[in-house]
Nucleic acid binder design. Structure first.
Lengths: 215, 215, 215, 215
DNA sequence: TATGAATGAGTTTTCATTCAT
DNA sequence: GATGAATGAAAACTCATTCAT
């Protein structure tokens, strides 16, 4: 969805870029309600009309900004997740991903758009389709790490992916609503405490099937 | 917030009522972005200025509507949850609650306001404080059903409550974004599949304490 | 202009009273722009509709409040001015009057309405007619103290009265615009410095007829 | 505030201009209370939103209009005052200035804003600061004409300037409140009658140092 | 006398969007 | 590509005022 803008690098292709970055920044700092064409353009040092000239509208620009950060995140997180080979490492990776997103503001940016989509039905399809790659991402790594094990049979990849994204969204919302992040931390802690149990318990009888730990 | 309006039923105390109901309806059907004073008033067959006269503002009206449905839900769900005495029944009750909320549109209504709060920082505190009773609600029933058991020690009530509300929010968002509810259903199924395992595995050695399943 | 409200003292004639007082207070503290029927009624602990029931409108109420304080001031200031028998004492009395009005907030109240009248042509006649008694007041005391003297011939009472009221208004405005009152004080000081000169020069040769300067 | 608009005369730089002029006109004719964005825009044949686009708000536009006429007046009046070399000529100049302002409506325009500032505290600082140049103006000419003389010592420039502006404001108000200008004229006449006396008496013995009265 | 509800007009303000240049 | 001006729609909100009770 992020159109390749690298090749046709016109003289002030820079403006497009600056608008996209500014869109992300304003979205994070002022919320969707504050992300007007004028606010973004001002932050980018550009003319508001360019939002329409380049992107066709404010929402389209915001989506472009989401696409840009999604691409970066995907690359980043792919590397993180790839290193996990056990359930515990996977949970660890998930936590790392969450914290990274939080620190970089990606999370806030995404969250604002999800919230906006709820608020404004016209945006829903756009946001919905943009969550697909992430579901596939989780599916892939769950399958890779847990696939074939009893746990994998108990919890099929697709459903775990849904649950994870769902949870991720919920945590995001919470962290936005609650200034203090103690709740969020408590929720993340839970995952860490449960993971070892799940591993221990569901993988105890390796006899049956190609359990990865049977090695 | 919803004062007892039953007794002193002034001629058009009905208007207040109609506005509150219309606020819920419009919120569900048009989203927060579509819930302007005019839209709500039109739907209630009232003058838009009455939104300000009676409630002081659009957001206050929407919060009043939330409070009204929250009160109803709390009563309803309290009865549902009170019947659960095992973890499985608790999960069952949670599912029932969720489906009820979904069908009655309570869920969408709540969800719109949560999303609006993300979008509009000024609303955050209001929404945040309104989630407290629900956290207490979950805490109470978890403690009642699981408290004292090994599972209860592994998963303390407060954290479970956070996690549940978090999850509920995430599921809500998903169900709003995805017109088709297959994902949501898949996610709920997961809970049902995990619950028995959790029960089996964590409560197998009842020796210690008043485990409920030792019966 | 202040209708006699003492005789028909109905049970809650008190409300009328409270509205009048509240009108003065709100006018002083919030300015004419903030003196809405609702604001005044709230401050009086009364229903806004009573503003219309008792006075016919907001402006009429504000004028009634002005009339009330004018009556008080007239009584008060009459006593002050009556004691002056020389030009210097008259200037002294004027200063006392000004300071009293300032401290009691009468000045601010009057000033707000004058300003409102400028702003809102419909009020002009009302305010204009209410300055008449004060012009007569000044005329009277000037004539009494200075009349017949050379100074009195140089400066006829009516014109001095106009000048004084004019000046009074100007000083009011200034004192409202400038938070710090140093300018106002400087202006009042001028009067004190000029008065003795005027007295000295114009009254030195009382017997002598046409010219005070002995020309 | 009025940027040099002469050179880069964009197609409808004229609109800004027309708005400023219309603001002055409406202010004079309808009073501040009638000077809404819509009223001004209508009078200028422009879209009300342009008031905000170009000036940021109604008050800012009105202040811009004041600045424009202030600039014109300063130029005009500077020339008038510069010719005065005696006290009488100075009083004469002041009268000319006053009459010019009255005829051109500058006076009414200024007066409306002063009144509005009284009514609306937020405007006070803006108006207050805009009176500074005029105080300096008076100070300068008083010093130039009377400075060093006994009268100059009796009446220091700064205080005279305060008094003059104060008086000017008061007279303005009066002239606005009283449709008929006989009072205003009477007040101006006073000044003419007093001036020669003051001149005569205070400047008679130029060689003599401190006190004109030979004390 | 007093009240609460209701109304309609009007205000400021902001926005997405378009267009001529 | 970029700009500044312009537009029309819509929003939130306030107010004076009226009316039935």
């Amino acid at each position: 969805m992020a159109r390749d803008t690298a090749r046709t690098q016109r003289p002030s292709e820079g403006t497009r870029d600056r608008l996209i970055d500014a869109a992300g920044t304003v979205l994070r700092e002022e919320g969707y309600a504050g992300a007007s064409a004028r606010a973004i353009a001002t932050s980018a040092g550009a003319n508001p009309a360019l939002v329409f000239y380049h992107f066709g509208g404010v929402d389209q620009l915001l989506l472009a900004a989401l696409d840009r950060s999604s691409a970066r995140r995907m690359e980043l997180h792919q590397a993180t997740a790839a290193q996990a080979t056990t359930l515990e490492e996977l949970v660890e990776a998930a936590t790392t991903i969450y914290r990274t997103d939080l620190e970089h503001g990606y999370l806030a940016q995404f969250c604002e758009l999800v919230a906006a989509a709820v608020t404004k039905p016209a945006l829903r399809a756009e946001i919905s389709s943009r969550s697909e790659p992430w579901i596939a991402f989780i599916e892939h790594h769950w399958e890779r790490v847990v696939g074939g094990s009893p746990l994998g049979r108990l919890l099929p990849a697709r459903e775990v992916a849904f649950a994870a994204v769902t949870y991720y969204l919920g945590v995001n919302l919470f962290s936005v609503l609650d200034e203090d992040s103690s709740r969020t931390d408590a929720v993340l802690d839970l995952a860490h405490r449960v993971a070892p149990r799940a591993k221990l318990l569901t993988m105890r009888f390796p006899g049956s099937g190609p359990s990865p730990e049977g090695r």
